[in-house]
Design a protein around this nucleic acid. Sequence first.
DNA 1: GTCTATACCTTGATAGAC
DNA 2: GTCTATCAAGGTATAGAC
Lengths: 186, 186
Amino acid sequence: MSVTRERIMELAEELILTRGYNAFSYQDISSELGIKNAAIHYYFPSKANLGTSIIKNNGQRFEEMVQNMKIMKFDEAKQLESFLRIYAKSNREQKICVIGSLGPDFNTLPEASQAELKQMTNRILQWLSSILETGRNSGIFSFKGDSRNRALLILSNMIASLQLTRVLDKTEFKGIHQTLLDDLKG
Amino acid sequence: MSVTRERIMELAEELILTRGYNAFSYQDISSELGIKNAAIHYYFPSKANLGTSIIKNNGQRFEEMVQNMKIMKFDEAKQLESFLRIYAKSNREQKICVIGSLGPDFNTLPEASQAELKQMTNRILQWLSSILETGRNSGIFSFKGDSRNRALLILSNMIASLQLTRVLDKTEFKGIHQTLLDDLKG
DNA sequence: GTCTATACCTTGATAGAC
DNA sequence: GTCTATCAAGGTATAGAC
């Protein structure tokens, strides 16, 4: 995979997470790379293709993380912590997450991107539900209701707190994050 | 205030809540109204102005709701319920909320819109914190931690659950909503 | 006071040069 | 295989007609 291609993906992802899908253009990327906007079309024939590739890439990175945690034999608390750390990092970098950026724009996305985003979101929720369920059974977590709803609540909190700290103050994220963890202690 | 002006605001708000700020144009509105796009500029000289007006309008509707609940002497449980009902309605109409739509686009918004959105969000959080605090003191609610963080969690859940049900399924909203209320019962 | 004709710029994308 | 010249469509906004 060429270096140019990788840099395009990096930049495009950064633009999506800081300014949104409909606010960035091929020219934003090409001018940064010192090439013409049309050069991007060689690597990614359409914006739809570029967007979908970025979602796919994100999904893969999530799967890798899950695999790594399995190999390292992390318990459920540690797995959740690692997952939440992704969002803490995004917060420091003033980025929101892929779901939180593309979710609001969902109706304007090409079909392939919609499908990819749906799949990734479901995978994350499936994984999160499962560690919550297992963690509760082994006494690590304490919460009411079924684990799918709890996973939805936690994911919601992560998605929107990144968005809120953009409108409010970066430091508010920590309070949300901590309260959420305290709740799970029962 | 002219009828055309009101219809423009209605349509613009709907477009923002279904497609996002950077995905709608003056032409989307004008073609729906059967006039030329430039006619909108008579009522709203710039898109920045239109966007800011819509946020302002939303903030005013929130203040009116708060005032009404005061007059009706709603207790804290009823006030919270009314507030959450706004989001349930949005969910039925396949809309997200103003904060959830404009938050992700924050960095691309004109300064006046940013300021207005900040102010509105802070007002909502201030109000929500206060009814949570009062409600806990009078034994209606039960939760851990300080009320500001709890308000942030609840607002996060509402914002992101609307976005998530766009990616996932409309019915998932109800689970989130109910779990959140059950949690507050202690 | 209300709206149209029109300008000017940026967008995503194609065809073809090197 | 990699990139440039160029295009048609659509964006916001201004000047001025009714």
